[in-house]
């Protein structure tokens, strides 16, 4: 042992792992007015859809999207229709706003340096930030699903549910299917959150990180619609997102969903590691 180590102040023992920091992070995200407004917009979409369908004289035509046609038969489809509509921009934007803010927001305020000297190790900071992003992704999708379910059941009633394959399942099983679909989309958005977390370590401007994350998801959607690059499609972040509809078939067509989960896990892992690689040695100068 060297003289230096002998003279070191004894390290203060860390207490057993506690969820205090994560709880604080979630409070910060969920109490912020901007984020609450965003969640309110997400929740308004199923309400809008249900009221629009209810009040329109004609039923949705045969050319309406899959879930829209079924809304009048079963209120649960309001949830699925709302998730489909919001998957294009609203849900990715909500997750991108939280993820983009994760590190860049703290850097921008200067609170990052005070967290690091508490001290919070950089890996722990990223882990807590990412956990909060994942939980927010689930909160967002389940909020849309639950609000859709409540308004749908109120306006159109429940009962047995006709799946996309045309067979009937019980209402309880239908409820389970909607929950499964929401959870799947939660995972999908959580992988976008990892991309956002990585971008958030590159800049001190949270808005820039959010915009870049939205662009990433939009670019993925655009590439997915260009047939000439179909070799790329299976690897795109958003390619399997719409596979959540397969959960509404009998029996459930798992292959798309499972592939989607693999892609989501791969993106989450790669971008979390990239965020760590970037953030671990970054000079915090503001």
């Amino acid at each position: 042992m060297s003289a230096a180590e002998l003279s070191a102040t004894a390290a203060v023992p860390a207490r057993r792992p506690s969820p205090r920091f994560l709880a604080s992070e979630l409070r910060l995200v969920l109490r912020r007015r901007r984020n609450l407004a965003g969640l309110a917009v997400l929740a308004a979409v199923p309400i809008f859809i249900a009221i629009a369908v209810k009040s329109s004289a004609s039923q949705p035509g045969a050319d309406a999207p899959d879930f829209f046609r079924s809304i009048t038969e079963n209120g649960l489809f309001v949830s699925l229709a709302a998730l489909t509509v919001e998957l294009g921009i609203f849900l990715p934007l909500a997750v991108a706003a939280i993820a983009g803010d994760a590190v860049a927001g703290e850097a921008n305020l200067g609170t990052l340096r005070y967290l690091l000297v508490v001290p919070v190790s950089r890996l722990r900071l990223l882990a807590v930030k990412y956990t909060a992003i994942v939980l927010f992704a689930f909160v967002a999708t389940f909020l849309v699903a639950v609000v859709g379910m409540v308004i749908g059941l109120a306006l159109f009633g429940g009962g047995n549910l006709t799946t996309l394959s045309g067979t009937q399942i019980s209402f309880t099983e239908g409820l389970g299917r909607v929950a499964l679909a929401s959870a799947y989309l939660g995972c999908a958005l959580a992988s976008l959150g990892a991309v956002g977390l990585f971008i958030s370590t590159l800049t001190e401007q949270p808005i820039a990180a959010t915009i870049a994350t939205v662009i990433f998801s939009a670019a993925s959607l655009i590439l997915d619609s260009i047939p000439q690059v179909d070799w790329l499609h299976p690897y795109l972040l958003t390619h399997h997102w719409t596979a959540f509809g397969d959960l509404l078939r009998t029996p459930i067509a798992w292959s798309g969903v499972v592939q989607g989960l693999y892609v989501a896990a791969a993106y989450a892992l790669v971008f979390f590691l990239a965020a760590w690689a970037r953030f671990a040695g970054k000079d915090v100068t503001n």
Binding site: V12, R113, V117
Partner: peptide, 16 residues
Amino acid sequence: DALPRVGALVEGPAFH
């Protein structure tokens, strides 16, 4: 290991 015993004010205050 060192920082729990160190209090720091770095380049002005910064809070939420």
